[in-house]
Design a protein around this nucleic acid. Structure first.
Lengths: 228, 228
DNA sequence: GTCTATAGGAGGATAGAC
DNA sequence: GTCTATCCTCCTATAGAC
């Protein structure tokens, strides 16, 4: 029976690059369904959604392509499942990051750090979630965009609180939220877990960069008139 | 005769959304070649490189699909031409922005402002150049990545000068350059020219945000040890 | 320069055996 | 549950007429 359902959520959080995020049973023998999902994530990330074929995904999963349709109704269902679960987990991760933070500055630091860490640790899924929206059906597109908007609103309300309390400099809240989120999201595009710097170190750099950018400093251009 | 050659460069710089960037003759009647390029830019941006078919491009250009092969050797040649010219123009634009700036802070401000303005004014091409690299042949891929690296190096040497002179806070130069560039590039993904804010206003916000982030401020996390 | 026609292949998806 | 076989559509690219 085809359900298009994905295994509940993240059970284990292990180093990036493994299939661990998808496993629902023994790490030694992932279920066929988990193998399909993990392969799809890998191929959508490496080649892109359109360039990755169902045959590719089947080959990587150790089955033949017709077998995929026993678990999923089609290629788009696979894409949507990956994106939806990534957005679900992203939101849960943010709420978790914010749980212990007291005050607006500490909250923003926690939010930025959490956002960066999630994007670096689950690089492939986040890359897909940010670059393959056009592959979704209209209904699924709307659903994922709504998830993204809900997530962004949390950052926007943090910025607004900070500005109201005088902790952050005045500025355009939407533009600032886009700036902060895209800045941190972009890490998922170039980060190499084998590189010089750890996830935590990069998250700390971003945290400082964003906080300095938000606070009062050497303002000069905000009110600059349009130039010729 | 097929040459895959693109018209020399930017002749006219008019509002985004027009075909003006591609026109080499009268704005009233673009050449077939210019129409093909402009349509390809539009479709690669809206639907993605793989999802846009040669038939789509031909239809938008007012010819039939076989006609495209009179001007271009294939679909990939079209993609590469768009990307190469975008990167050429981007580099030229940066050099032009930097020409009059004196001192490292003013230079960085000019560079950021120029980068943002170019990305917002030529949104579609920059979106393509940043998201469709996987569609290129290996040789063309290498060529475009080299152009991008050359461009990044200019920002990196600006950051390095600023740090050496004590104008900017110490930090990881590569990470900072990626942060700055992806931050500003991301504007090409969400910017709407019909929106509330002008290109110049957004560029000014980004300029301040980046400069505050680079200068000394309320450092706290750079040396933080890894957390549990 | 642009068209019609078509080659040649690949991809998503289904039917039905095992 | 997974396989083999196949359908049907769509795509890039070419051939050759006009």
């Amino acid at each position: 029976m085809i359900t298009d359902s994905f295994p509940p959520a993240v059970r284990v959080a292990l180093p990036a690059g493994t299939m661990a995020f998808f496993m629902t049973q023994s790490p030694d023998k992932p279920s066929t369904k988990d193998a399909i999902i993990a392969t799809a994530v890998d191929l959508f990330h490496r080649k892109g959604y359109y360039a990755a074929s169902m045959s590719d995904i089947a080959r990587g999963s150790g089955i033949h392509k017709a077998g995929i349709y026993y678990y999923f109704s089609g290629k788009e269902a696979l894409l949507y499942g990956i994106m939806k679960r990534t957005m679900d987990d992203l939101l849960a991760h943010l709420k978790n990051s914010l749980a212990d933070a007291k005050g607006v500055e500490a909250s923003m630091r926690a939010a930025v750090r959490g956002h960066v860490e999630f994007h670096l640790r689950r690089q492939k899924q986040n890359f897909i979630a940010n670059s393959e929206l056009r592959g979704l059906s209209p209904a699924h597109y709307k659903a994922v965009v709504k998830q993204r908007d809900d997530y962004e609103r949390i950052f926007q309300s943090l910025i607004r609180s900070g500005v109201d309390e005088g902790v952050f400099a005045a500025g355009d809240i939407k533009i600032l939220s886009y700036a902060i989120l895209t800045l941190c999201t972009a890490g998922a595009f170039w980060f190499k877990s084998s590189g010089r710097l750890s996830v935590e170190h990069i998250a700390a750099i971003y945290e400082d960069f964003v906080l300095k950018g938000l606070k009062d400093g050497t303002l000069k251009a905000i009110q600059r008139p349009n130039e010729a």
